[in-house]
Design a protein around this nucleic acid. Sequence first.
DNA 1: TACCAGGAGAAAA
DNA 2: TTTTCTCATGGT
Length: 218
Amino acid sequence: MHDRLTDIYDRLLERYGPRDWWPADSRFEVMVGAVLVQNTAWSNAEKAIRALSEAGLLSPQALRSTGQDQIAQLIYSSGYYNMKAKKLKALVEWLGERDDDIEALMAEDPATLREDLLAIHGIGEETADDILLYALDMPVFVIDHYTKRLLHRLGLAPEKGPYALYQRLFTDHLPPDVPLFNEYHALIVTHAARVCKKEPVCGECCLLSLCPTGKART
DNA sequence: TACCAGGAGAAAA
DNA sequence: TTTTCTCATGGT
């Protein structure tokens, strides 16, 4: 499995190049972005982040002292703006309980911190892992819909299963390498946006630029 | 016009 | 506990 996963990674990296994730100016901005991008195109989330930044609200303290309705207005472009405003408030309240010390979070045990993140309203497994990996530099592999679909198409995993099943597939067979996990997930997302999205499954061909269905985009 | 996008929580079955 | 519903804008 290690060689298989490494081979897929190498092919993706060769085809798409380094993705330079996560695009943000601070660790806190990564956390905010992880919430705003939930089930939303990054371009829409990005506009919302810019709006928060221009309003001077891209800090835990500023978001705590701003009304949920005002935040919702600013992040309108990201969709689900009422829900996401509530989620951002929950996130910064949690950070406040930890003195907004994000650097200190990085010294914590990843598994324990993950449980704490999951207890925050609006932070599910994928968002928690986004934060652990991309904001806090912890060797946690992020699983999303794309990753499940890719593994299934390549015959490496069942179509349905718990999050942890897919995650272990990577973490059990790859070294806990932050740059590797960072790049791998980013490459999968990049790849997923460019290959045929619907069945029939074209499987391996999507990775090899040899899609016989002719549906692979370039 | 319909579908999809770097999900998660609540309600229903 | 597993499935279904709701949240919502913007690009293709």
